[in-house]
Simulated scan of single mutants.
Amino acid sequence: MEERTRALSDANERLREADRRKDNFLANVSHELRSPMVTILGYTDLLLGERLGPISDRQRQCLQIARGSGRRLRAFIEELLDFSRFELTREAMTLQPFAIQEAVLQAVAAFAPRFLERRISVRQRVARNTPPVLGDRERVLQVLTNLIANAERHLRDGGRIVVSAEPKPGFLLVSVHDNGTGIAPEHLEKIFDRLYQVGDVKTNRDARE
């Protein structure tokens, strides 16, 4: 019996080690992909701005398509990085009281230039008397940022986003609502699967980029 227990413990340790290696590999690959993507998008913007010389209408159209695809790929790479960071640090969360109002304000403020450019209205519905919550502030901020970024990505110009926090018995319900394209019913059961994506959803923003 003792020998079987030891064998099972060794097998579990090997699985944990394999999982750690997978997380490290994912983090390294994401970092390696991000650097060339930043360069590609940078030069694409230079070409579109005609800083390297004039371009034709056809060239502009092709570059806009390339930039739109590059931005979507960059967003996916950032999601991979966020996921790998969470996996590597999930056992080292710092739990302490913090004000959810400040976290919501900080997350929304990070997108202010983008919202202004695309005429997106944002409302924050957090009562002033909302009590402090116990949690890892940086992780909560990361989740809020990801949700807002996802909402912005699938909104039409002139759309709206509402970020709210509502106290419930024993917990705080934080939500991000938008009037974008939404998720088809057949995909709802997959939304918590790791790295699952529905695919490209066309908006008038895609046509512009």
Rank of each mutant, 00 (worst) to 15 (best):
I148M: 04
S121M: 10
E117C: 05
G135V: 12
R128K: 07
G159V: 04
D157W: 07
I120A: 08
I148W: 02
N146I: 15
L141Q: 12
L155T: 02
R119A: 09
N129H: 11
V140R: 06
A149T: 03
V122A: 03
V126C: 08
L134A: 12
P131K: 08
N150Q: 10
V108E: 05
I161E: 00
S121Y: 07
V143H: 05
I161H: 01
Q142T: 15
V108S: 04
V122M: 14
F115I: 06
R156V: 11
P132C: 04
E152C: 10
I120N: 00
A127N: 11
Q124P: 01
D157L: 06
L155K: 00
R123A: 11
V122P: 02
L141D: 06
R156S: 14
R114V: 15
F111G: 00
V108Q: 03
V162P: 01
Q124F: 01
N146S: 13
R156P: 02
I120F: 04
L134Y: 03
G135K: 13
G159M: 04
Q106W: 06
A112V: 07
E138D: 12
L116T: 10
R118V: 02
R153M: 10
P131L: 09
P132S: 10
D157E: 12
N146E: 07
V122Q: 00
R139C: 10
I161Q: 02
V133I: 15
N146T: 12
R137N: 08
R153H: 08
L147V: 12
A107V: 05
V143C: 07
G159K: 01
I120C: 07
G158Q: 13
A107H: 03
V126H: 01
P132W: 08
P132L: 07
V108Y: 00
E117S: 11
R160Q: 09
R139G: 01
N150L: 09
V133R: 05
Q142M: 12
A109G: 06
V126L: 06
R137E: 11
V140Y: 02
N146K: 14
A107R: 05
L141F: 11
V126F: 09
G158D: 09
N150F: 07
R118P: 03
R160L: 05
G159E: 00
A109W: 10
R123H: 03
A107F: 02
T145R: 14
R160D: 09
V108W: 10
N146R: 14
V126P: 00
T145I: 05
V126S: 04
R128D: 12
P131E: 10
I161W: 00
E138Y: 10
F111S: 02
L116P: 00
G158S: 05
L134Q: 13
G158H: 11
D136N: 10
E152F: 15
E138W: 06
L134E: 10
E138L: 13
N129D: 14
V108C: 06
I161C: 02
Q124V: 14
I120K: 04
N129Y: 06
I148H: 01
H154W: 03
P113F: 09
A107T: 11
T145E: 07
E117H: 08
R114G: 05
Q106Y: 02
P113L: 08
V162M: 11
A149R: 15
R153P: 02
A110T: 11
E152D: 13
I161G: 01
V140A: 06
